[in-house]
Simulated assay, not measured.
Amino acid sequence: MHTVDTKGHLCPEPLIMARNAMKEVKEGEKMLVISDNETSYQNLMSFLSDLGANPVADQKEGQYFIEITKPAETSSGKEGNPEAYCNIPHNMPEDSNYVVVARGANMGEGDEELGSLLIRGYFNALKGMDNLPTHIIMYNGGVKLALKDTDTSESLAELEDKGVSIIVCGTCIDYYQIKEKVSVGRISNMYQIATKLAEAGHVVYL
């Protein structure tokens, strides 16, 4: 049985590890996920249940052993959003809960070529920071940053793997007629975007 040892890791890492490992097994195969703390265990159970993996847990000597079965939904692309299952610690400053908004394919106003270089540099720098945003929201021309074969999409994919939720405006995608070219993030509607902006402790506009 394939085993994923998440001991010593904090959310969303255990969820990401479990999700990635699930890609390596076939539909209907069983997998074991091990955790060593109550919070990660609870988050894993909620996450895996929502994926349809039917988690069955057992606790021994302070460790949690969760047996799951890979569902058909996961193999067809239903992967879930690990970050959404993690609560921000109560002692974390409110401004640490921040959202980044890309309103265009360039950063700032002025020369477009310079703005393109700046926004690529920003996302490259962001993925190396300790204090990552909870969400990156892209609308209007910003949705083009998520297109396949772009430098920004590669950086955004790395940030998504680290637990940052990438949200792409569906209306904007339809307007530019580029839906089939989007390679990263979750296509969403304006109500959900407005909700995430309202919930954020701080918003960084590019």
Results as ranks from 00 to 15, higher is better:
residue 6 T to P: 08
residue 33 V to M: 08
residue 125 A to H: 14
residue 95 D to C: 07
residue 166 I to E: 05
residue 13 E to W: 01
residue 27 E to M: 09
residue 146 A to P: 02
residue 200 A to R: 00
residue 19 R to H: 05
residue 17 M to C: 04
residue 197 L to H: 01
residue 172 C to Y: 05
residue 156 L to A: 06
residue 199 E to V: 01
residue 61 E to V: 10
residue 130 D to Q: 14
residue 40 S to Q: 07
residue 21 A to C: 02
residue 41 Y to M: 12
residue 45 M to Q: 11
residue 103 R to F: 06
residue 203 V to G: 02
residue 39 T to R: 13
residue 113 E to T: 14
residue 82 P to W: 07
residue 92 M to N: 08
residue 56 V to D: 14
residue 102 A to M: 06
residue 160 E to G: 11
residue 22 M to P: 02
residue 164 V to S: 00
residue 136 I to R: 01
residue 8 G to Y: 04
residue 21 A to P: 02
residue 118 L to R: 08
residue 126 L to N: 02
residue 47 F to R: 02
residue 96 S to H: 09
residue 174 D to A: 12
residue 20 N to I: 04
residue 159 L to Y: 03
residue 25 V to G: 02
residue 81 N to Q: 13
residue 109 E to Q: 13
residue 26 K to H: 12
residue 135 H to D: 15
residue 134 T to S: 13
residue 197 L to W: 01
residue 162 K to W: 07
residue 36 D to W: 00
residue 13 E to A: 10
residue 168 V to H: 04
residue 143 V to P: 01
residue 203 V to C: 04
residue 104 G to T: 08
residue 199 E to C: 03
residue 176 Y to F: 14
residue 189 N to L: 09
residue 50 D to P: 10
residue 78 K to R: 12
residue 17 M to Q: 11
residue 56 V to E: 15
residue 3 T to D: 10
residue 186 R to D: 14
residue 167 I to R: 11
residue 166 I to R: 04
residue 111 D to P: 03
residue 85 Y to F: 13
residue 132 L to K: 11
residue 155 S to I: 04
residue 90 H to P: 12
residue 51 L to Q: 03
residue 125 A to I: 11
residue 127 K to Y: 01
residue 42 Q to T: 09
residue 133 P to I: 10
residue 112 E to G: 05
residue 46 S to G: 08
residue 51 L to N: 06
residue 6 T to S: 14
residue 179 K to M: 06
residue 19 R to P: 06
residue 158 E to P: 07
residue 58 D to E: 15
residue 184 V to C: 09
residue 98 Y to C: 03
residue 39 T to H: 15
residue 79 E to T: 12
residue 47 F to N: 04
residue 62 G to V: 02
residue 120 R to I: 13
residue 7 K to I: 00
residue 163 G to Q: 02
residue 180 E to L: 01
residue 3 T to H: 08
residue 105 A to H: 12
residue 179 K to R: 13
residue 54 N to F: 13
residue 33 V to I: 15
residue 138 M to F: 05
residue 17 M to N: 09
residue 142 G to L: 00
residue 167 I to F: 12
residue 39 T to A: 15
residue 19 R to F: 05
residue 61 E to G: 08
residue 70 K to Q: 10
residue 22 M to A: 12
residue 37 N to S: 06
residue 197 L to C: 02
residue 47 F to S: 03
residue 100 V to I: 13
residue 34 I to C: 09
residue 4 V to D: 09
residue 61 E to C: 05
residue 29 E to Q: 11
residue 54 N to T: 12
residue 154 E to I: 14
residue 87 N to Q: 14
residue 129 M to F: 10
residue 13 E to S: 09
residue 52 G to N: 03
residue 28 G to S: 02
residue 55 P to E: 07
residue 22 M to K: 02
residue 72 A to P: 06
